[in-house]
């Protein structure tokens, strides 16, 4: 297949993300990468679970966590996962405009999540003086949740960059795999969050 066919395909195949060898490589490689990310987050979860009682006389999880905010954040992120499924649905139907719209909604929800998370951290720091340096529990909490937040920031920047870069030219066999793996990344962020709200927040207030 020539460069021209990749950028201007005569017709879009059913699975444009896997139509080229580069696409197939990206698809497989990114799944493998997520396998590694699982171990990364497991190490952080394990550390958190080992240290969540080590408050060193400072604020404990029961004193800190409130569930209202976490519930809203969870709903935002879960919904953004569904909207990115919609985006990929339209990508496969070669409907670029609808894909961009759903990706836009995904980004908006993600930004909402991020805003709440920043507010939450701000709140802990200013009202409870609970920081990375307060206790081993504080270190573990900010590192685990912060790593997830960092993934959200990276995922959002990635999706936004892809949307802007391709806004004018639409879908082709070169960018379809990029959109696809970015959406996989976004789902994975949601997967991690499901465990964070369960293990950190829900188990934290018990």
């Amino acid at each position: 297949m020539s460069e021209h066919d990749v950028l201007n395909p005569k017709e879009m195949p059913l699975n444009p993300e896997k139509a080229t060898l580069e696409g197939k490589n990206k698809f497989i490689g990114f799944w493998f990468f997520l396998g590694g990310e699982t171990v990364l987050f497991a190490s952080l979860f394990g550390t958190y679970l080992a240290l969540n009682g080590s408050t060193n006389g400072g604020s404990s999880s029961q004193e800190l966590f409130g569930l209202e905010l976490v519930f809203i954040m969870t709903m935002l992120l879960l919904t953004s996962s569904l909207t990115s499924v919609y985006a990929m649905y339209h990508m496969k139907n070669n409907d670029f405009k609808k894909m961009q719209i759903w990706l836009g909604i995904t980004v908006a929800l993600g930004l909402g999540f991020l805003g709440f998370e920043i507010y939450e951290f701000y709140h802990y720091i200013h009202h409870y003086e609970f920081t990375l340096r307060s206790s081993a529990f504080g270190s573990a909490f900010y590192t685990l949740v912060g790593f997830h937040g960092g993934h959200v920031v990276f995922g959002l920047s990635w999706i936004i960059a892809l949307m802007i870069r391709n806004a004018k030219r639409g879908l082709n066999l070169y960018n379809a795999p990029k959109f696809y793996i970015a959406s996989l990344y976004w789902h994975f962020i949601d997967v991690v969050w499901v465990f964070i709200f369960t293990v950190v927040y829900l188990m934290g207030v018990l």
Binding site: W31, G36, E37, T38, A42, A50
Partner: peptide, 29 residues
Amino acid sequence: KGHELPAFMFYGGVFAAFLTILALIALVW
């Protein structure tokens, strides 16, 4: 279909993840 290998490697990660969490819960204190 076409996700056999991704699933295999992902579950490989889950396996290592499981052992890691288990050890850090049970074998630290």
